[in-house]
Design a protein around this nucleic acid. Sequence first.
DNA 1: TTGACTCTCCAAAACGTTTCGGAACAAATT
DNA 2: AATTTGTTCCGAAACGTTTTGGAGAGTCAA
Lengths: 335, 335
Amino acid sequence: MTSLRSLASDLGLSITTVSRALDGYGDVAIETRERVKKAAAAIGYRPNSAARRLRKGFSETIALVMPTEPGRFYEPVFVELLAVLGERLAARHYDLMLLAARPGAEEQAAYRRIIKDRRADACIIVRTRRHDERVALLQEADIPFVCHGRTETQVPYSFVDGDGEAGFREITNRLIGRGHTRIAHLAAPDRLTFAELRARGWHLSMRTANLADDLKRSCLATEESGEIAAAGLLASSDRPTALVCATDRIAIGAVRAVQASGLVVGRDVVVTGHDNIHAARYTNPALTTMELDVRNVGECLADKLFELLDAGEPKQRGTVFPLRQILRASTGEAT
Amino acid sequence: MTSLRSLASDLGLSITTVSRALDGYGDVAIETRERVKKAAAAIGYRPNSAARRLRKGFSETIALVMPTEPGRFYEPVFVELLAVLGERLAARHYDLMLLAARPGAEEQAAYRRIIKDRRADACIIVRTRRHDERVALLQEADIPFVCHGRTETQVPYSFVDGDGEAGFREITNRLIGRGHTRIAHLAAPDRLTFAELRARGWHLSMRTANLADDLKRSCLATEESGEIAAAGLLASSDRPTALVCATDRIAIGAVRAVQASGLVVGRDVVVTGHDNIHAARYTNPALTTMELDVRNVGECLADKLFELLDAGEPKQRGTVFPLRQILRASTGEAT
DNA sequence: TTGACTCTCCAAAACGTTTCGGAACAAATT
DNA sequence: AATTTGTTCCGAAACGTTTTGGAGAGTCAA
């Protein structure tokens, strides 16, 4: 224990000098520095993190609060995001602190504790909402943060997102090009920004082509809810020939609804999703969808965070990654 | 800042007395204690965590290292486990620290850092392996830990697991009862304990019924790998009539393989899985599977951890939860 | 010779908490 | 009256690090 002290006495130096040697200050003789570094490496010295935090006033910790909604948020891709983040943060000896809280009072309390106790130096906001109290809270408290996803605010903030609007414009345009005119959109709850952006992409594409843009239905981001919404649309005498869904899980429900109506997916009705979850390759027929590179997103989030911590602001406020379109049989494409 | 000091001077008391009043020591007058507690609550006082950690020598933090294997470990259920854990730990003001590391040298280094720096008071091991260096490492370092899943060791350790063996015995027995005699098992990589236990359940059931127990094939826990393994079995002239799969993802691949052979799932060949992932309800036909209550597991993990931290050992070393069988059309049951 | 400057090093304070070992006083016991 | 016991409080040390503000010795210029 008391490692800095024992290192110092082993070397016949003061604690101060050892500390400065390791921190790379210029005020210690070059040979002394080398000697200290070698000794430190030999015993695998790493400064006690609590002491360091106390003295320096920051924690080298990043907090991420998962919104655990009642309807859950089971996203498998989230695990991968955590893995990429963890990796990237660890490279700079930062810790990732994970909290769980239901949106609402509980969530607010969690952020307030982070802020008040300065338990973390910065936050990552996921599942960003259109009107997001978390953003306001952190801006007011002057805690650095980066959002995964966008929000609607005047005040500048940092974010990383996929270009859902362009992605949905593109797929809708493609379907229009194939002759579809009645293209419906199954949207996720519109308090979530990604849902709004994807809907906007579909909407713009339809408007530009002078097609009816009233075929939007909102549902939860679950298979069950998607199935119900799709069934409603298909029951109409003037049913859509295409279902552009905000997420793969919704699309999987939609596929089921189409089949329950006695129609054939990919021929009578085409279906598309977003996320490229594993199951999307194993629906029958396989699901046309689009994909965001999680590794890019995770690394970009971490990099922006460090720019924020190092320089006070990132080189670029927001970064939007393009989506990769994945065409499969659910839109009649070759598998 | 310097909150304890300012609280003390506001109240005209010493720092010592304020500290002891809040900690509930018996050595401060009851009315003083009340006065202090009221004042602390009023300003929302919470002790500086770095200072507390430094002084007390423990961190009120639990570490969880995700094994990020090359073939990934995308399990959606893991997100829910994290959420439950986070909730339960937060109730006792413990933080959850998340690390990511590839099994092997990187993983070892991560654990060594936790141990050496005492960054966390205890660990949670997930994806427990049959021969698990993590268990040995933590036992040697005398760091409390709880495993999600079991390992093969003489030394007693704490764990929480689902009863995969019983679950697979039960489903296999059920299929035997229905007249199946050629029942194959698609197993996950057998370095993972859960894979071994599920295989054992299938094996015991087959042996007890005097049926051929040579129809076991190993594959990765992915749809793709499951599909290949299943296709191999189905190509045989003496093909199995049942595919008992270690996971739903394997089972989803198996379903695809059956259909690719021109056979009908649920009639010609029945298929079963494990996990009850969302997609399992939306295969065609829906997948018979079994489910472990994640909330139970998460809460049990946290509780065991606290018993370990409080008392040095838990009331019960290991807890095994029963699995809930979910019968669907892939075994010809009513949906 | 003196003063200024450079180079290396270090003692001590500080971060905010917990806790050891009393102090001061009143009440009870001998 | 003297001693013990109990109650309530507090000063000061400690946890391990970083950082401030020099100290001492040597070098260079005036």
